[in-house]
Amino acid sequence: MAATYATAGAGRPAHAARGGGMSDRAFAWALIAPAMAIILVFALVPLGYAVMVSFRMADLTRGGLREFVGLDNYRTVLFDQSFWESIAVTLKFTVAAVGLEMILGIAIAFLLHGATHGKTIVRSILILPLATAPAVTGLFWRNLYDPQFGVINWLLGSLGLPEPNWLGDIDIALWSVVLFDVWQWTPFVALIALAGLSSLPREPFEAAELDGASTWRVLRVLTFPMLAPVLFLVLILRTIDSLRLYDAVAVLTRGGPGTVTETMTFYLFRTGLKLFRMDYASTMAIFFLYALLVASVFALRPLLKQFTERAQAQN
């Protein structure tokens, strides 16, 4: 993926000593065979189907798969205004949601790390938002967000604060969806960051403390670099999931008001499963996959380099 990892020419130290190198390689490939069998079939078949459909005219309610149209679908999607608008909404959502979740998550992790007692209770409460399905609690948040009957506006009203129309106001509808996503996923980041924190070895910190390093220096020099791999993995996973956001939008705002909260996947759902234009839907999916692949070739480079180097170092 990124730069080649195997140092050219050095090759791997032969370790025939351990009962024949060949059986090691065979063993390694045998280990991944079952998982790869499922992934290959259930990833490549639909991808192949989507690529094939993206070159043809396919409207399920107009005779299904029809004639070959070359790159016309790609041209139509490229010049589709709603498509680009939904990409803008998706990017806005991802940057806001993932940014907030990482900052708040790490802050909460530090908060809890320093706490002496009550950590387990707090940790189990934090898992609560995660244990509920967005399709179910998202529905309930629609009740909370109701301008007239909702609890949030009642609390704000009794404090004299303004009572916003959370899901109806074009300026704040997207931030209401972000708030729901932050509520659900910040604990995920916090729990993983907290675990990372509590797993750091003691010695370097005690040494730093002896020579009186300021907290900020310890954070910058010691804590964050050591936490980087775990946090980086969480960041990648949250970004991919936020870019594919569908459940929250489908339940809270259905893309409304207007198209203010219509993310890419929701527009894709509407095109594919409401208009049944599978050709446009597949083409959009391919654009989405392509963009993510290009981004992750660079984004995954450090993590992959770390995995492969640690794997080789131990051979």
Binding site: M1, A2, T4, L78, F79, Y290, V297
Partner: peptide, 27 residues
Amino acid sequence: MTFSQAWDAGFMAVLIFLGTVFAWLGL
């Protein structure tokens, strides 16, 4: 050039190919 390097270069080349096609269609 090891297989791994060849695969990596090949994959990047495909991305570049597709990127040019999309850019061409769009611009």
